[in-house]
Design a protein around this nucleic acid. Structure first.
Length: 571
DNA sequence: GCCGTTTTCGGCCCGACTGTTTTCAGTCG
C-alpha cells in the first residue's frame, strides 16, 4: 500500500457515501482526506496515529481508518460499503454528467450496476422512462459513454510515470546490476500514454519471470526470453524488452518512436545504404554493424545530431538535426518564476508564507499569488475589497522568505467576455491571469469573441488555461485558438501553459503555434498546495514538445526583466 | 467526519447551468 492506494480507498468511501446520500460534510471529509493523502510528501505507511492526527483534516476516525488500511491493506468500513453496492457501480460516477443521485436512481429503478448495463439501457430507450429523466439525458449519457470509449486504456502522463517508476523499482530489486529505461510515449512526454514500454539491458532471461510475477499483474499477455507483455489492474499494458548492451541505444531509439519519426529515420538510413532496426544500424552491403550501443552514435552515423525524445514526431526534427539547428529545449533549471498559484485565501491548501517558502526551496526567484475572483463562489473567490487586502498581505511578505512575490489574481472571464473585477482593482495588482471557468456551452464564434474581448482589457497580462480542456474527461470548450493567439499578439498579452497534469493547456501543438506567431508564453503550475509547485515537470514536457527554448518563456527571465516584459509595464 | 469552542454541538465556500420541470433536482467546478 502506498499513499496513492490509501487515497483511492478513501475516495471510494466518499463515492459510495455520496450514492447513499449521506451527510455531504462527511463525504467532503473523506474526499478531502483522499486529496491530502495523495498529495502528501510523506509516506503514510510510516506515520503513526498521533502523527496522522497532527495533519489538518485528519481527525480521530480518519487517522484510525488510515492506520487500518496501512496495516491490513483494507478498511472494514470500505468493505461493508462495497457489499451494499456492486463495485462496478463506481465506474458510472466517472461519466460526464452522471453524478451520485443519477447512479443511485439508475441502480434502484433499472438495476443498472455497470457501464455495460447503462449502455444497454440507454440504447434501449429505457433511461427516459425514469421520472426526472428524458430523451436529452439519455443522449447525454450515450455521448459520455462514447467519450469514455475514446479514452479507454489511456492514462495521464503523470500517472503513467508513477506506474512505470514503481515497476522499474521492483525489477531493479531482482536485477540490481541491470539497466532499465522507460521508452515509448512516456519518454516522448506525450500528454496521455497507452502502453508502458521498458527496455532492459544487462539482465538474465529469468528477469522475465520476475516481470510477470509483479503483484499488480492481472493477465499475462506474453512471456518470452526477450519480450514479455502484461496487463495490469487499472488498465495498463506493460511491455518489457530485454536486449544486449551493444543494442541498448538501438532498442531505445526503436521503442521510443514515434512511429512517424522511425519511418522517416529508417527511410533516411536506406538512402544511405543502411538498415535500421531495434538491434542496430547495419550496412546493407556486408551486413556489418555500424552503430547501436547509444542513440547518439546511430543519429550521428546518419548525419544527424541526437534528437531529444520530445521532438521525435516527424514535425521537422530530422531537417533541424541535419542542419544542426535543433532548439536548446527549456529545462527546469531555466525557470526563475511561477506565475499562477493559490492560497488558503480561496481554494488553496497553504498560506502565502508556506507557498513563498516552498517556491524559494525550489530555487525560484519569484512567485505570483493569483487567487480566484468572486465569480468562482465555490472557491470562495475574492471581490475587489478582499483582492486588494490580500494584495497588501502578499506585498508585506514580499522578499521575506527568500522569494519575490507578485500580488495577482486569477480573474474569471465572464460569459460576455468582461472581467469579474473592476478595472481599478485589476490595475492596482501586480499581475492578472484571466481564465474561463463557467458557461462552457457556447458556440465557437461566441466563445472566441468572449476570450478575445477579455484579452482586449489592458490589465490582462496572461490568458490562463486557454482551452479549458481536461484530459481524458472532456475536450476544451470550442475555441478558435488561432484567432486567440493572434489577438494575444495584437494586445501584447502572454499565454499560459498550465502544468496541471490533467490540463496541459495549451497543448504542445497550440504552444508551437503561439511560438511561431511570436506570442510570449509562460509556464505555470496553478498550484493549490506547496507540493503542487512540482507539477511544473509536466508542463515542461509540453513546452519541450512545442520546441520552446528558454527565451520563448517569460518566466525564465530575471525578476526585473520579467516585470518589464509584462504587458502592464511594456508599453 | 473535522473543527473549535462562549468545549460535546453546530457549522462546514455556493452559484451557474441543464434538463426536467411549472418550482426544482442534479451536476459541475
Amino acid at each position: 500500500m502506498d499513499n496513492h492506494a490509501i487515497a483511492r480507498v478513501l475516495g471510494e468511501i466518499a463515492d459510495i457515501l455520496e450514492i447513499k446520500g449521506e451527510n455531504p460534510f462527511k463525504i467532503r471529509a473523506y474526499r478531502n482526506a483522499s486529496d491530502i493523502v495523495s498529495n502528501h510528501p510523506h509516506d503514510f505507511m510510516r506515520l503513526d496515529a498521533d502523527e496522522l492526527r497532527g495533519i489538518p483534516g485528519i481527525g480521530k476516525d480518519l487517522a484510525a481508518k488510515i492506520r487500518e488500511i496501512a496495516d491490513t491493506g483494507a478498511s472494514r468500513f470500505h468493505q461493508e460499503l462495497l457489499a451494499e453496492f456492486p463495485p462496478t457501480i463506481l465506474d458510472l460516477m466517472n461519466l460526464q454528467g452522471v453524478g451520485p443521485k443519477t447512479v443511485a436512481t439508475l441502480y434502484r429503478d433499472l438495476g443498472i450496476k455497470s457501464i455495460d448495463d447503462l449502455e444497454a439501457a440507454a440504447k434501449g430507450g429505457r433511461i427516459r422512462s425514469i421520472k426526472g429523466m428524458g430523451a436529452k439525458k439519455e443522449s447525454l449519457i450515450l455521448k459520455a459513454l462514447e467519450e469514455r470509449r475514446q479514452h479507454a486504456g489511456r492514462h495521464l502522463m503523470s500517472e503513467t510515470e508513477g506506474v512505470a517508476a514503481a515497476y522499474i523499482d521492483y525489477l531493479k530489486q531482482a536485477a540490481p546490476a541491470a539497466d532499465f529505461v522507460a521508452v515509448g510515449s512516456l519518454r516522448r512526454g506525450c500528454e496521455t500514454c497507452g502502453d508502458i514500454d521498458i527496455v532492459a539491458t544487462g539482465a538474465e532471461p529469468s528477469l522475465m519471470d520476475v516481470f510477470v510475477e509483479y503483484p499488480a499483474v492481472e493477465r499475462i499477455l506474453g512471456h518470452g526470453d526477450t519480450k514479455s507483455s502484461v496487463r495490469l489492474r487499472d488498465d495498463y499494458q506493460v511491455d518489457l524488452r530485454l536486449v544486449a548492451p551493444e543494442s541498448r541505444g538501438a532498442a531505445m531509439q526503436y521503442f521510443t518512436g514515434s512511429k512517424a519519426h522511425n519511418i522517416a529515420l529508417r527511410d533516411r538510413a536506406i538512402g544511405r545504404g543502411f538498415k535500421l532496426n531495434e538491434y542496430g544500424l547495419f550496412a546493407v552491403e556486408g551486413g556489418q554493424k555500424v552503430a547501436g550501443e547509444t542513440e547518439a552514435e546511430i543519429y550521428e552515423a546518419l548525419g544527424l545530431a541526437w534528437i531529444p525524445p520530445e521532438l521525435r514526431e516527424d514535425r521537422g526534427e530530422l531537417a533541424a538535426a541535419e542542419a544542426h539547428t535543433l532548439p536548446r529545449l527549456i529545462e527546469r533549471r531555466d525557470l526563475r518564476g511561477d506565475l499562477h498559484s493559490h492560497t488558503t485565501e480561496t481554494d488553496g491548501k497553504d498560506t502565502i508564507e508556506a507557498m513563498a517558502r516552498a517556491a524559494a526551496a525550489r530555487g525560484l526567484e519569484y512567485l505570483a499569488i493569483t487567487d480566484h475572483s468572486k465569480a468562482l463562489a465555490m472557491a470562495n473567490g475574492l471581490d475587489e475589497a478582499r483582492a486588494l487586502a490580500h494584495a497588501e498581505r502578499i506585498r508585506a511578505a514580499d522578499g521575506k522568505f527568500g522569494v519575490r512575490l507578485l500580488a495577482g489574481i486569477e480573474c474569471d472571464i465572464l460569459a460576455d467576455g468582461s472581467l469579474d473585477l473592476s478595472d481599478d482593482c485589476l490595475a492596482a495588482l501586480d499581475i492578472v491571469v484571466a481564465s474561463v471557468h463557467s458557461a462552457f456551452q457556447m458556440e465557437r464564434d461566441e466563445m472566441t469573441a468572449r476570450v478575445i474581448r477579455a484579452l482586449s482589457n489592458p490589465h490582462v497580462d496572461i490568458l490562463g488555461h486557454p482551452t479549458g480542456r481536461m484530459l481524458l474527461r472532456r475536450s476544451g470548450y470550442p475555441l478558435d485558438v488561432d484567432a486567440v493567439v493572434d489577438a494575444a499578439k495584437r494586445y501584447g498579452a502572454a499565454i499560459e501553459i498550465n502544468s496541471q497534469a490533467y490540463r496541459l493547456d495549451l497543448s504542445d501543438v497550440h504552444a508551437r503555434l503561439a511560438l511561431e506567431r511570436g506570442v510570449p508564453l509562460v509556464l505555470s503550475t496553478d498550484a493549490h498546495s506547496t507540493a503542487a509547485l512540482d507539477v511544473v515537470q509536466w508542463g515542461l514536457r509540453m513546452a519541450r514538445r512545442a520546441w520552446l527554448q528558454p527565451a520563448d518563456v517569460l518566466n525564465t527571465l530575471p525578476f526585473d526583466d520579467f516585470r518589464s516584459r509584462l504587458r502592464r509595464h511594456s508599453r
